[in-house]
């Protein structure tokens, strides 16, 4: 016996529409607005350090060492470090390796993760088996530990100069152990979407595998993964600080906030607190703002958790 007189309801999922809603939802909150401004600020600092400091961070004059912050308008607004390098210049130029590393690592992990997730979820079979084994194996080794191991071994290898050269080793290592989360999310989303009616319909109409993957399944998967990105960026920035603290992060003579924290920390109680506080403050502000954005993005995309 069939049920009486119920109209067929066709469920249409419009991912395009949700982005506008998400944007509106997030920008309504003052903490998100503040966080966005702060992160944009630091991105600008990383991209154009020259705007913030005329001095060359590597031009260090030992005769002007350990000067306390003098305030803006003076030659050394944030003071100098024990080797005579200008702190503000270091801060401004130190932003770039940290942020460049973060964006590179997250970007590369994202691409790898999406590719592997799509392939394994879509084709299943042996592709999935291989990817799943890979996932398991890589997931077992904690990111930091892998980084410590590999970067210790790579210590002596010289990669040359230039922005990318300074970050290439940590970048490779962090990406190598950072793709797993995205793969899992994308794979799960693919498995879910494969059975949605509109995907089945498109396949019945003869859409090719690639077209199915990119036009129909990927948009659904992207939403779940996007929420991970800002928090991941924050994670890499913190990880770099730890690596730099141990001497295996960004390579000198390039400067990063991690290196500044590592050298500044012992001077805190010696009467030069600013050497630790400035880079720590920048690190904290950047990390916090990305985390706030990430959390709000996640909440906006998944109302079930409210």
């Amino acid at each position: 016996m069939t049920s009486a007189a119920v109209d067929l309801e066709v469920v249409t999922d419009q991912p395009g529409g949700t982005w506008a809603t998400v944007g509106r939802h997030m920008l309504r909150r003052p903490d998100v607005i503040l966080a966005t401004l702060v992160s944009l600020f630091f991105i600008v600092v990383a991209a154009f350090p020259g705007l913030f400091s005329r001095t060359d961070p590597q031009h260090c004059d030992i005769s002007v060492a350990k000067i306390k912050p003098q305030g803006f308008g003076h030659p050394h607004p944030f003071g100098t470090d024990p080797s005579g390098c200008d702190v503000l210049a270091q801060l401004a130029h130190g932003a770039r390796p940290s942020l460049l590393l973060a964006f590179t690592v997250v970007g590369a992990s994202l691409i790898i993760g999406i590719a592997l997730g799509l392939l394994s979820g879509f084709y299943l079979g042996w592709v999935d088996a291989v990817v799943s084994r890979l996932l398991e194996v890589f997931l077992v080794i904690p990111l930091l530990l892998a980084a410590l191991l590999l970067l210790s071994l790579f210590r002596n290898i010289d990669a040359g100069d230039g922005d990318f050269a300074t970050i290439v080793q940590p970048a490779i290592v962090l990406t190598g152990f950072g793709w797993m989360g995205y793969t899992r999310y994308v794979r799960a989303a693919v498995l879910e979407s494969k059975n949605l009616d509109y995907v089945r319909a498109a396949r019945a109409l003869g859409a090719s595998d690639l077209r199915l993957m990119f036009s129909h399944i990927l948009p659904n998967a992207i939403a779940s993964v996007t929420a991970l990105v800002p928090t991941a960026i924050a994670g890499v920035i913190s990880a770099e600080a730890v690596l730099a603290f141990l001497g295996i992060g960004v390579r000198p003579p390039a400067i990063s906030w991690g290196i500044m924290i590592s050298s500044g920390a012992p001077w805190f109680t010696g009467g030069y607190p600013y050497l630790l506080l400035f880079p720590l403050g920048c690190l904290l502000a950047t990390v916090l703002s990305f985390v706030v954005i990430g959390d709000n993005l996640r909440d906006a995309l998944d109302p079930k958790l409210k």
Binding site: A241, V242, P266, F268, T269, L276, L280, L284, V287, V291
Partner: peptide
């Protein structure tokens, strides 16, 4: 929980230990 999460372990420990 959001605030706690945002503080990397490293920062918390450095702040605690050195400050």
């Amino acid at each position: 929980s959001v605030l706690i999460d945002a503080f990397p372990v490293f920062v918390m420990l450095v702040v605690y230990r050195f400050i």
